[in-house]
Design a protein around this nucleic acid. Structure first.
Length: 449
RNA sequence: CGGAGUAUAGCGCAGCCUGGUAGCGCACCUGCUUCGGGAGCAGGGGGUCGAGUGUUCGAAUCACUCUACUCCGACCA
């Protein structure tokens, strides 16, 4: 992408409403625009990151055996009356009437609707297990939206729903999602810790919140430091096999949020040198809730013996629109964002220090085309601006590698590569630049961890 | 939902107390000179001062009402 042809409204001054660093940086980097309280437009740069995050989530869901579909944002109130949640949900639910005065709502979640789909089509135990998911916009009329897209009213959520014959099978489905989540966060460069959680209004008795440690996190968390270094299950892990050992390994070490923590238990379970008491951002939440919805909504299948069996369900949520700021909270410095390659809006930026100069333009255009051909997601800063402005922009928007070429380098036949994360700079022959950039980026894509 | 604030050009702000037809920086447009860490000079464009009502000869400024947004707390992916 040529920056001169792109839409990247970076800001010099920070709008005053922004408090936390991720919100400030998302505004300054031209990623989002607030349209009303808790409602955001995703501008091109932000949207590109959001889609990269979503793609990783989808790839790992698919790998685990979940199947993607898409349900609408608007739902019928009648469906929610069946589960009893239409009245129970309270003012957080945005209720809507259509022109015929029929009652609708903007979905805050989709348990009812997926259960309706399931009960319509799935009739036999032979069709289980089944896990269906979608990535769709949700709306929860939060009392107090804040922190940009971290706590917005409209937000994107991947929600998966598992259906199984028995609780034992449902626990296996839970373990599959557990492993998928471990891999999902890891691919984004995040260390997210599963913590035992309150099941809240959704109900059920097995639940974990996924927490990224960050000083600006909304909840206090307590865990064993050894969780931070645990190896992530590999790409070729067999999701049809027994995942209990992985689950047990991760859940054997203490980790709980403030709502669930028992300090005496924490101190008994974790040696003092391993205790972590910190703040964290919730980036996902998974539940097993049994027959809470399948029973009132009559989601049953016929078992081997011809009897009707109420299915056991779980739901598994992760929010891409929250993950983006969470990643920024984890990866930034004074100059701006420091994206991990796997979610960076562009993998590298080519900085033409003297746009308009025929020789510089020609050399940069050649590099740009070669890097595109090599499969690098490139931004080419070909704007007619001073070098300082280009460096500042590149640092702010956090592109992992800056390939810098100007008249000086052109004369000596050398280009420069700046590593955004370490600040390290290397000078190399222009002819070697493409291969070097590729060799730096490819190992960090984390497509195959 | 309780408490506290804010609202003037795209963004950041001054002006308000003490009423007299709106200003600064950045951004934007034109020209020239620049070009290795947010360039310089010259010229230029852009605002029903959140909305409404009132007071006044006259309201960004005073009064009242409303709306939006932010922050602190209680609640949530």
């Amino acid at each position: 992408m040529r920056l001169s042809r792109y839409f990247l409204p970076v800001l010099r001054d920070v709008p005053k409403e922004a408090e936390i660093v991720s919100h400030r940086l998302m505004l300054r980097a031209g990623m989002i625009r607030q349209q009303a309280s808790g409602l955001y437009s995703w501008l091109p740069l932000g949207y590109k990151v959001l889609m990269k995050v979503q793609k990783i989530i989808e790839e790992e869901q698919n790998r685990s055996g979940a199947i993607e579909l898409l349900m609408p944002t608007i739902q019928s109130a009648d469906l929610w009356r069946e589960s009893g949640r239409y009245d129970a949900y309270g003012k957080e639910m945005l209720r809507i009437e259509d022109r015929h005065e029929r009652e609708f709502l903007y979905g805050p979640t989709n348990e009812e609707m997926i259960t309706d789909i399931f009960r319509t089509y799935v009739k036999s135990y032979k069709d289980l297990p089944l896990n269906l998911y979608h990535v769709q916009w949700k709306f929860r009329d939060e009392v107090r939206p804040r922190f940009g897209t971290m706590r917005s009213r409209e937000f994107l959520m991947k929600d998966a729903y598992s259906f199984d014959l028995t609780k034992e099978d449902a626990v296996k489905a839970y373990e599959r999602m557990f492993v998928a989540y471990l891999r999902t966060y890891s691919r984004m460069g995040l260390t997210a810790i599963p913590m035992r959680a309150d099941t809240g209004p959704i109900g059920g008795d097995l639940s974990h919140e996924w927490i990224v440690l960050a000083d600006t996190g909304e909840s206090a968390v307590f865990c064993d430091r050894r969780l931070l270094d645990k190896p992530i299950p590999p790409q070729d892990i067999d999701f049809r096999g027994d995942l209990k050992p992985v689950f047990d390994d991760w859940t054997s070490l203490y980790a709980a949020t403030e709502d669930m923590v028992d300090m005496a238990e924490f101190e008994a379970a974790v040696p003092e040198e391993h205790r972590v008491s910190a703040r964290g951002i919730e980036v996902g939440h998974i539940f097993y809730f049994g027959t809470k919805y399948s029973e009132p909504m009559k989601a049953t299948v016929t078992g081997p013996d011809g009897k009707e069996i109420i299915v056991h369900m779980g739901s598994y949520g992760v929010g891409p629109t929250r993950l983006v700021p969470a990643i920024i909270e984890a990866f930034h410095d004074e100059a701006g964002i420091v994206w991990p390659v796997s979610v960076a809006p562009f993998e590298a930026v080519l900085i033409n220090l003297k746009a308009g100069d025929a020789e510089c333009d020609a050399a940069c255009t050649k590099l740009y085309e070669e890097l595109n051909a090599a499969g690098i997601d490139m931004l080419y800063d070909d704007r007619d601006q001073g070098a300082g402005a280009k460096f500042t922009t590149a640092d702010l928007i956090g592109i992992p590698y800056q390939l810098i070429l100007g008249p000086r380098g052109l004369k000596s036949g050398e280009a420069e590569i700046k590593h955004r994360k370490s600040g390290e700079r290397e000078t190399l022959p222009i002819a070697d630049a493409v291969a070097r950039i590729v060799s730096l980026i490819e190992p960090q894509r984390r497509n195959d961890i």
